[in-house]
Design a protein around this nucleic acid. Structure first.
Length: 721
DNA sequence: AGCACGCCGACT
DNA sequence: GTCGGCGTGCTC
């Protein structure tokens, strides 16, 4: 039997591939193989096929070539190679990250990847046999008069999929192949474009080959409409479109909007919140070219799309495009690389572009498309106002004027949001007598007081304990909560506004699946008019009647060691502000600050992000900070900081002569976390080349000779300092 | 990463 | 006398 020899990338932290023998013809480059490895069995991706046997005496045969995915196309392989090289990650790990979990298992995938639809053979006959009391079953039978996707069936009731299985077995329901949309998409509810939107659409449509666009426009300026129009133009050429969004909880809203616009289109979403089966089916639909629109989070950037014609990155500045575990890639940067490689336009949208993107736009590498006008019906710019807190007595952490405005807003039946980026009741519990504070034993952080279940919690390592009745050091029984968290603000507002009880929305009470949606529904139908929330509420959710936003602790971002903190604060505050004033009246945004004179607030109040970004960029140029220099961060943790620092110092030595500057290793911002002491080594160079080379040099070194008792991470182009 | 093999302390 | 600690070495 003729054999071929495969080079296979495995999901291991090793920067090399392994060779196997396989019968000729059963597999090819980009396909999945299941192979024996030591005494385990692993899934891998074929990198190369050769007729020449490698010089390795213990060569093994592959176990299986499951052929359950279409071979990863050359462009996805190239993207993964680039990602592996740039971020100093093993190629096998990148390829594993590119596949849905079911196609990473060392066994063939049982599903066939088709999004079958289901239809009743004789709906009336089925209904006649159902009990009149089985309301949900009858509802499902009614629905199945027309073909329904699995997900639509599932949404009817918890047991709906089981009934479907039974009805299929009894022959009442059959699977039908979904119709694949093609050619010019049918669009409904097409709003008129303003001049800026029309110009943007024209520019993107005219792109032939690679072109990067920055779609720069505030909330309500109609960015989504521009996406929809350019997408329609690509669909009309029967191309596929990849749309990246930052967070899972944003996908349903945007997905609904896309479905409403393109009712006949198979729109497929890809994010980590999907069940394995659904994600795999969606991925395969995209990879086979059956779905023309893919809407996904960062992991979707690797999706094979044979007829890809456009990539959209919404909210391109958002930090969640950065993968922080395992392979540390930036999906936004990879999207731009992929667009260039495949010679396609890429559209980056933001009201507050990252300084990286801003630099590319101001130096002409990206074309800036401005949407200066609020295009969405009823959208009006919110008014921003500072509330200096230096000399005035706050009431439960809230400025009296803010309370007054809250009262007025609620009195005229408006909705109001109090924004505070701190969960819990109070960020720390302290003893007035001896100065004891609730420190975490394992982290360089405070234990946060949670009154709901009367516990102290560390938000960094998960440690928790009951609230001590008295000071552990001096026995004083009068321990005081210091500062405000969402729960304390909720309590304070509940006491002040008994007629309009506040609803708190933060991670503590939205852990359960669907609870966030349920809460948002209460806000949308007006049952709740006073909201207290964190970060979570800043993104994506539009509340039509929201008239007032009060921001309580913005200052935290002003004096950070991280040079990107101001940029993030600006984005966050504008995003929160953008929640207000969407129904005709201008929204009001009040920002409490102890530093009203800070230049940051002058820029914010001027509402001129462009001026702010120009200034930030000038500073970065002057101080040689990214993106005007290339950075690499080696993070290390050990039981003792000395071990971590010694390890980093040794690495620093290994970087001599590499054309990079390695700084002195220092303790990390949070120097202790979960019992590990942490340090970091910053490596810089004027350009990316030497930094990337240094990263792969170190990675090789560390894999060849792993340090004892030290955990390390190589972070190319770090986003947090 | 797994999972072996391989030499030194407290237990059936 | 064994069970078991995790140190280092290999996996095609």
């Amino acid at each position: 039997m003729p054999y071929v020899y495969l080079s296979v990338a495995l999901d291991l932290p090793l920067p090399r591939s392994f060779d196997y023998r396989a019968p000729a013809g059963v597999t090819g480059v980009g396909e999945r193989v299941i192979v024996p490895f030591g005494r385990q069995t692993l899934s891998g991706v074929v990198l190369a096929v050769s007729d020449v046997p490698p010089d390795f005496p213990k060569l093994k045969d592959i176990a299986e070539a499951p052929a359950d995915l279409p071979a990863l196309p050359a462009d996805v392989m190239a993207l993964c190679r680039f990602c592996a090289d740039f971020y100093a990650a093993p190629l096998g790990m990148v390829l594993a990250a590119a596949l849905p979990a079911a196609l990473r298992q060392p066994r063939p995938w049982a599903g066939d990847g088709t999004h079958w639809h289901w239809q009743a053979v004789d709906a009336d006959g089925l209904l006649a046999r159902l009990s009149p009391r089985a309301r949900k079953q009858r509802q499902l039978a009614e629905l199945l008069r027309t073909p329904q996707a699995r997900e639509a069936v599932r949404d009817v009731a918890g047991d709906a999929l089981r009934w479907l299985g039974e009805w299929q077995a009894s022959g009442d329901v059959v699977a039908v192949a979904p119709v694949r949309a093609g050619g010019v998409p049918r669009q409904v509810a097409l709003p008129a474009l303003n001049a800026a939107q029309a110009a943007a659409v024209t520019a993107v449509d005219a792109a032939d080959g690679y072109a990067a666009f920055l779609l720069y426009g505030v909330t309500g300026s109609g960015k989504t409409e521009v996406y929809l129009r350019t997408i329609a133009a690509r669909l009309a050429r029967d191309e596929q479109v990849l749309v990246l969004v930052p967070e899972i909880n944003l996908t349903p809203q945007l997905e609904a909007r896309f479905r409403a616009r393109f009712p006949d289109e198979a729109i497929v979403s890809l994010h980590s919140g999907l069940a394995d089966g659904e994600r795999t089916r969606n991925w395969l639909q995209a990879a086979r070219g059956d779905a023309r629109i893919v809407l996904g989070t960062r992991l979707a950037v690797f999706t094979p799309l044979p007829r890809l014609g456009l990539i959209v990155v919404d909210e391109e500045h958002d930090g969640s495009y950065r993968q922080q575990e395992g392979v540390r890639y930036s999906a936004r940067d990879l999207a731009v690389w992929r667009a260039r490689d495949r010679k396609l336009p890429v559209l980056l949208g933001s009201a507050t572009p990252s300084i990286e993107t801003w630099k590319n736009a101001s130096e002409g590498r990206y074309t800036r498309l401005d949407l200066p006008v609020r295009a969405v019906a009823g959208a009006v710019a919110p008014t921003l106002e500072l509330l200096p807190t230096g000399r005035i007595a706050l009431q439960d952490g809230i400025h009296p004027l803010a309370l007054e405005r809250l009262r007025a807003t609620l009195a005229r039946c408006g909705q109001a949001l109090v924004f505070i980026n701190r969960r819990g009741y109070a960020p720390v519990l302290a003893c007035n007598e001896c100065g004891w504070v609730s420190n975490c034993k394992r982290c360089e952080a405070r234990l946060v007081l949670h009154l709901g279940d009367r516990r102290l919690r560390c938000h960094h390592c998960g440690f928790e304990c009951t609230i001590p009745a008295e000071c552990p050091d001096c026995g004083n029984a009068d321990l005081k909560p210091l500062g405000q968290g969402t729960q304390r603000i909720e309590d304070a507002l509940a006491a002040r506004f008994p007629d309009t009880p506040p609803l708190r929305i933060d991670r503590d009470n939205t852990r359960r699946k669907g609870s966030l949606e349920a809460m948002l529904a209460q806000v949308h139908d007006g049952r709740v008019r006073l909201l207290v929330g964190t970060q979570m509420l800043a993104k994506g959710h539009d509340f039509a009647n929201l008239q007032l936003v009060v921001v309580l602790n913005a200052d935290a971002g002003l004096f950070s060691v991280d040079f990107r903190a101001e940029e993030r604060l600006f984005a966050q505050l504008l995003q929160v502000a953008g929640r207000a004033g969407r129904a005709g009246q201008p929204g009001q945004v009040l920002i409490q600050t102890r530093y009203p004179e800070h230049p940051f607030y002058a820029a914010l109040l001027a509402g001129d992000y462009a001026a702010f970004a120009d200034e930030q960029l000038a500073t970065r140029r002057e101080l040689l900070l990214p993106p005007c220099a290339a950075w690499l961060m080696i993070r290390a943790e050990a039981k003792r900081i000395e071990t971590a620092l010694a390890f980093l110092n040794a690495l620093r030595g290994a970087l001599a002569g590499q054309g990079v500057q390695a700084m002195t290793p220092i303790a990390a911002t949070m120097s202790r976390k979960a019992g590990w002491e942490r340090a970091q080594l910053l490596v810089t160079a004027p350009t990316r080349g030497p930094v990337v080379a240094a990263a792969s040099h170190l990675a090789e070194l560390l894999v060849a000779k792993p340090p004892k008792g030290v955990r390390w991470v190589i972070d190319v182009d770090p986003q947090d300092v």
